[in-house]
């Protein structure tokens, strides 16, 4: 009798344990699957954004090359023709007053032609693709220093091989920071440091301008948002610090796995 009761109790207990164990397993599996699903969704979204950025950059490059070619093939050729006409008019008219004016017109046309040719070359060539980040930043700093408005100092300590998207994102962000400092900060010195360590690539930009309140909603213009977007899309971190009267600093960091990824 007792044995039978024990048997009944054991079987009932086993049933309850099986049911509860099954329930706990199911809940645990559901939790794991949800986490995995969220991670997969985030990975897909990130890849999608990167693919969009890739496509955007490719289309921009193609558009710029097309514009460059059209400038060379169409506008430059018409200006060349205009320059030839003015030369012929100079030859046909000997009146000094007219000759001076024709000479000025010819000079303006030739200057425009030269600028257009430079612009066409800039739009058409693969500068970012072909050159290292150090060379590109060096050229950028030289161009600004030559204007004499502000001294840009570059300290470049990296030999890392960067993929096109990271290079492009860093270059455009640094260019944007420098442009913002020149236009709004009223600074006379900008420091650009690029350092590489075991973890990744760190870029620090400093200006000695008037600074601004980063909490001010009007201060966060499209430029700042674009800079942040470019860097976060290539997996980097973006940290902008500024206070009125204390200048502005921007720290960027991209870890090693994102430098060569994509």
């Amino acid at each position: 009798m007792e044995t039978e009761i024990v048997l009944i109790i054991c079987i009932m207990t086993a049933v309850i344990i099986i049911f509860i164990a099954g329930l706990l397993l199911f809940v645990n599996q559901l939790k794991n699957r949800r986490q995995l699903y969220e991670k997969e969704k985030a990975d897909i979204e990130k890849q999608h954004k990167l693919d969009l950025l890739n496509d955007q950059l490719r289309i921009q490059k193609q558009t710029m090359q097309f514009i460059g070619n059209e400038i060379h093939d169409s506008v430059a050729q018409k200006l060349t023709l205009a320059s030839l006409y003015t030369r012929k008019l100079e030859y046909d008219h000997n009146h000094p007053g007219v000759l001076n004016k024709l000479d000025n017109i010819g000079t303006i046309i030739n200057d425009s032609l030269e600028e257009l040719r430079n612009l066409s070359r800039t739009l058409s060539n693969d500068t970012i693709q072909d050159k290292q980040l150090g060379e590109l930043l060096h050229a950028e700093c030289q161009k600004i220093n030559a204007a004499g408005i502000c001294k840009v100092e570059l300290q470049f300590n990296s030999g890392a091989q960067l993929n096109f998207m990271v290079k492009s994102a860093l270059l455009r962000t640094i260019q944007e920071f420098i442009q913002n400092s020149l236009k709004h900060a009223g600074c006379d010195r900008i420091l650009v440091t690029v350092d590489e360590d075991a973890a990744g690539l760190a870029v620090v930009l400093l200006d000695n301008g008037k600074g601004f309140d980063t909490n001010d909603a009007g201060a966060a213009g499209i430029g700042l948002n674009n800079m942040k977007r470019r860097i976060t899309l290539v997996g980097g971190s973006f940290n902008l610090q500024s206070k009125p009267g204390e200048g502005t600093s921007l720290s960027l960091f991209i870890d090693n796995k994102n430098l060569l990824a994509l």
Partner: peptide
């Protein structure tokens, strides 16, 4: 089916003795 397996499994035992 899990809850009633012991019931139908031990039905005679339960009915006769308990």
């Amino acid at each position: 089916y899990l809850g009633t397996l012991p019931y139908f499994g031990l039905i005679h035992l339960l009915y006769d003795n308990h």
